[in-house]
Amino acid sequence: MSSQQPPVGERFRRSRQRRDAGLAVPPAEFSSYYGRPILKPPVWTWEIAAYLFTGGVAAGSSLLAAGGQLTGRPAMRRAGRVAALAAVTASAGLLVKDLGRPERFHHMLRVAKPTSPMSVGTWIVAAYGPAAGLAAIAEAAPLLPRRGPLGLVRRVLPPVGRVAGLAAAATAPALGTYTGVLLADTAVPSWHEAYPHLPVVFAGSALASGAGVGLIAVPPAQAGPARRMAVAGAALELYGAHQVESRLGLLSEPYRTGRAGQLLRAGRTLTAVGVAGAVLGGRSRVVAALSGAALLAASVATRFGVFRAGVASARDPRYTVLPQRERLARRRAAETP
């Protein structure tokens, strides 16, 4: 936080400088107030984009862990649980850090509000976090002494961990997808219009990043499910991203252009590379790990891409005015017989 309010002129610089328009009349595409944004661009900074990623990693990892747990793949279970705890811890940190008043983070727990995806998300995280945490802690059981009070803990932990791991996995899909609603339930044009697709993108991205964790941490021999998860996740993610980039009319533009476009393209490439590596990499530990890393990187790129596309759409009044004008025209046309 800077200690000074930046000047208004700085805060709302026109996103697209049409230079040298001079005294000539530019094409009457649309009108606005000095080209300034109508909406306030999100005040969220990189932390939220990063959280989209870490939340996804947590969700994917918990599913991976639960799968490992239920299909008897301890390495996968362990890796998933530890990654989930790390990711959810990072998530909480990022979320708190992004607050304007971090010391008031607990005010989130004052209410439970179905109209607020952030409130819903808070409670999802509140349910998921402890479960994921317990499951991960349970992995530490073998390190405890066999006797004494800790011995009791050592004995109790694994079953608790099993229950917790399943509980975490049960809430993980919610954790992985609610963020799509979090972004969509705003006035940010390219986020809002993308509401049917964002949860799909995020679900896929979460699966793929969970798979990435598996590919890195689990010997290739045990990693078959992770590879399949990578394929499934990539499929969902690529399908969703394609929808977002092509089905929203003008509002798809921010996903294809600028920094956001670059990021999303990078994400797609990395996903493809990661999946290809995972599927075709044979038994190479190195290739598997690189593929996993690629998937994780893809998820980062996708999340930041989606995030930035929204911000860009809020900054340019074109994306606010033109679709609304069209909507208005459609409604008026429908009203007049």
């Binding site: 639960a66 799968g67 997808t177 799509g180």
Partner: peptide, 20 residues
């Protein structure tokens, strides 16, 4: 939106189940 998120969550769960 919640409906779509629900569908996506199911897809995600399904993806995991299928993977295993």
């Amino acid at each position: 939106m919640w409906k779509r998120a629900g569908v996506a969550a199911l897809a995600m769960a399904a993806g995991a189940v299928v993977a295993f």
